[in-house]
């Protein structure tokens, strides 16, 4: 399984990568901004995308929109956000996000959610 993590916070990215690798959930790729995320999504296929909302160049919502509308892929997407505002959550789901996790988050919970999504594919 191939997982893409998009977040500009190195700590967050590294912790998720550590956790998912430790749980042997798949091969993890990392990008630090929206532009690189789009580029890598164009070139490669992923089984799961975990993206932050606020990133340089383009947001997690835009990436979700890009995957669904431009690439026309049904890749599961987990959105991470420091703001758990109702509007943001709704917008993420309207764009086609599979799940939403507010920061600060539990790494154990994230791993379980990832496991569940990947096993349902």
């Amino acid at each position: 399984m191939k997982i893409l993590i998009c977040d500009d916070d190195e700590a967050v990215v590294s912790m998720i990568r550590f956790k998912l690798t430790r749980e042997k959930l798949g091969e993890v790729s990392v990008v630090n901004n929206g532009r690189d995320a789009k580029a890598i999504l164009n070139d490669m296929h992923f089984d799961l995308v975990i993206t932050d909302i606020h990133m340089p160049y383009c947001s997690g919502i835009e990436i979700t929109q890009y995957i669904r509308e431009t690439l026309k892929r049904s890749t599961p997407i987990i959105i991470l956000s420091a703001e758990g505002l109702e509007d943001t959550v709704l917008q993420a789901f309207q764009m086609g996000a599979t799940d939403f996790i507010s920061k600060p988050f539990s790494l154990a919970e994230l791993a379980i959610r990832v496991k569940r999504i990947l096993s349902s594919q």
Partner: peptide, 10 residues
């Protein structure tokens, strides 16, 4: 910095 982003056991 790390603790700001996580809850629970971490």
């Amino acid at each position: 910095h790390v603790r700001k982003n996580v809850v629970g056991t971490s």
